[in-house]
Amino acid sequence: MPAGKDAKERMLHYSRTVHICVVTRDKGSGKVGVDRNQHPTFEYSLLAHDEDSMMTGVDQALRVLVAAGATEIGTHQFDGERFKVQGKKRLGNLNPWSRICKSMIVSYMHHSV
């Protein structure tokens, strides 16, 4: 699918796209400083422990969306990955996916749900 069409198609679902936010209590911490113009600077990198909390949360959030009946799920990961939920009639409305993707989705869903 061309990229422009993909973006528009996602926007068409806007009003019924439910977001769940995974908020972590971070064990790691960042740093606030000032640059040479005395403007604030912020440094932060995610600790492995916190990344693990976040991944656990993302996994659980995706399962919650599926359990509530989502027809399609995804993250805000920059590469635009998304998964159709299998076994629902309404899937017909959405764009077709390649076989490879479908089998991967199935394995992903089995793995995580």
């Binding site: 972590t24 971070d26 911490s29």
Partner: peptide, 21 residues
């Protein structure tokens, strides 16, 4: 001063719930 900045990093996931059900 400036150390120990906790941000409670967050990440969003999304799901589509069509209106027709």
């Amino acid at each position: 001063i400036g150390k120990h900045l906790r941000l409670h990093p967050a990440h969003s996931v999304w799901g589509i719930f069509p209106e027709d059900s």
